[in-house]
Nucleic acid binder design. Structure first.
Lengths: 141, 141
DNA sequence: CGGAATCCTATCGGATACTG
DNA sequence: CAGTATCCGATAGGATTCCG
């Protein structure tokens, strides 16, 4: 065999390019976990999609996503802001206009969203032989 | 403006290529939701990573991921199998060898995992100005 | 308008124990 | 070896109400 620095030696370099992906448990510094954290949570990708079209106010977002409750939207925006993906901007004047804008970091999620869409679209064509439903009880003559 | 078939008209075609993405709530047939469902759940991406290296037995997977409990592994494998991403193969003989192998559909997740890694790595370099800690009270005079 | 505070339920995932 | 069965605490997220 080659070398014994790694746990099991052969890592696919395109899949796991560096040491941060060579973990044996879900650690928060693993790039995959970081990216998943950024887009996970119900409604998150929809909120991101709206913000990708440009800045929106809290209420505008609620109008675009009528089934999204104020509490959850508020949570999502705070998470996104906490990760530096979104900025909250208060436009001074009267009344106080608030808007949420995607940062450069937030824009960096676009290729991921595109890839998620692509992959999901590919998966949505059903497998030739669907989830092998085992013949539960073979009908006896 | 152009036409009034859509709710708000201007959709980014690279972000939302077709009607399945033009939803105002998280519907299970939206491609993004489908892809997210495939990779979501704790440990899921790690299990996929292992299976991307080739088929593994239940116990082999537990050895690679020692902190992953049998129950959760069992759940993950059943979910993945249910989505047609993994197949369970029983090698008859003694003892009964069981192994889990990625299907072609499962392999189709590889680009997504790569993109997740890429994006997460990009996000892990901290923003020039971190989460904008707002000047809580503007110093007067 | 732009939220925060509560309350409530469902599900998730970890620990432990047991089985063919 | 390859799981299942149970229990249990912690979130997640929806509904509702209230606030500056």
């Amino acid at each position: 065999m080659g070398h014994q620095t790694e746990t099991h030696g052969d890592w696919d370099a395109t899949l796991v390019p560096d040491a941060r992906g060579r973990t044996d448990r879900p650690l928060p510094h693993c790039p995959v976990e970081i990216a998943l954290a950024a887009v996970s949570g119900r409604w998150t990708t929809l909120v991101l999609r709206e913000l990708m079209h440009g800045p929106h106010s809290f209420t505008a977002l609620r109008e675009r996503l009528p089934a999204l409750g104020a509490k959850v939207l508020s949570e999502r925006l705070r998470e996104l802001a906490g990760r530096g993906l979104v900025v909250r901007e208060e436009q001074r004047g009267f009344p106080v206009r608030t808007r949420y804008r995607l940062t450069a970091r937030g824009e960096a999620l676009r290729p991921l969203l595109v890839e998620l869409y692509r992959t999901g679209a590919a998966l949505s064509v059903p497998p030739s032989v669907p989830p092998p439903v085992p013949p539960s009880v073979p009908p006896r003559a």
